[in-house]
Design a protein around this nucleic acid. Sequence first.
DNA 1: TCTGGGGTCCTAGGACCC
DNA 2: TCTGGGGTCCTAGGACCC
Length: 421
Amino acid sequence: MSAIALLDCNNFYASCERVFDASVKNKPVVILSNNDGCVISRSEEAKQIGVTMGAPLFKVEALLDENEAEIFSSNYPLYGDMSGRVMNLLQNFTPEVEIYSIDEAFMNLEPRKKSLDHLAESIREKMYKWTGIPVSIGIAETKVLAKVANKRAKKVEFREKGFLNLYRSEKIEAILKDTLIDDLWGIGYRSALKLKANNILTAWAFREMDSRFARRLLTVTGARIALELRGIKCLPFDLSSAKKHSVTCSRSFGQTVSEYSEIKEAILYFLTRASEKMRSQNLAAQSINVFIATDRFRPVPSFYSNTATYSANYATDSNREIQDWAIQTLERIYKPYYEYRKAGIILNGLVPAENLTKRMFDDAHFEKQHKLMKAIDEVNKKFGKDTVRFANVNPHGSWKMKQTRKSQSYTTNWNELLRVS
DNA sequence: TCTGGGGTCCTAGGACCC
DNA sequence: TCTGGGGTCCTAGGACCC
């Protein structure tokens, strides 16, 4: 039985901003979602003054001003780059690292030369020294228990140490009894309601629950979590950094949009971004899902939301072809007169772009398009986004979000390096 | 035309995560 | 005035096959 660690970066986005801007140390810092809509990351100081996760900016703006907080739009190139540094560093401690999210990774700590506590300490220390990012670590026999340990490690009692080792620990029972069912990884709002209706209020009660009943109530997903709480591994360790199954691009608009031509513009723009990302992983899509929606908070004159899928007989990575799919699909769901607030596309059925099934008729033609797309991607990578683009794509449509508080791309753009004066 | 059991594949929708 | 975006997995149900 091996020990699993879950490492995550504390207040990741806020911490990233701090690495490069000393003037925001020891101040409340918050990072906003796209459109500068709501708070998605908070420094410790911001949490303390009572800014909640997901709070809409307009509701906490006064509070932030009073406390002289720093407010940033999200800067994903920066966070992505910092994430890469963190994950690379982890490989020095064990080859078995599963990157679970931009700021979290599971690690298999076996075999090891040091004690688990010692190992956790040295990982934390090196991470801070080399990347400037503070991290928390939870250690246990399964992923779910490691998650519990990690969460607890952030609480006041363990914050100083920054890690909690529950591997074969007699503390497990007490901690599970003190963990509310709502706070358990994998149990969301819906499942928590069902469990509470059955008087299952804590992680411990869930662990002790009859597993057939757990399965009936929450399907296999829930049953697995209950077993993991007992120390039985059900969630596999995924080292493969597996290829994606889908790529999404969607946005809320900066203002409402009604005209078909503008919605189409937005959709084609999202398509450009998503297919770029797809090709960067050498994948091709076999279907597309298009969705549009009016403002869910202000259903005026009435709420409308719809989605449709186009499935092709072959996969492609050519924008020309996917554009055709997208437009046909959009036409099926677009209705005039509505004030749309959000739209997006999902590319599905991703397969490796090499060795695609040969097409009966226009294979040579497709080969050409494939090469053309690759060439366009190269140019845009070198000279900047949308240097070369399809004429029907407008990267500056009226639907475009506003991002007014973005920090610099310190690590990914030569023109925005940190200046030392 | 109806009748049965057993199987696969696909899709839409739900639930959850960060 | 102002409320994010990008993913995964599971299941039920329809269509189809023998």
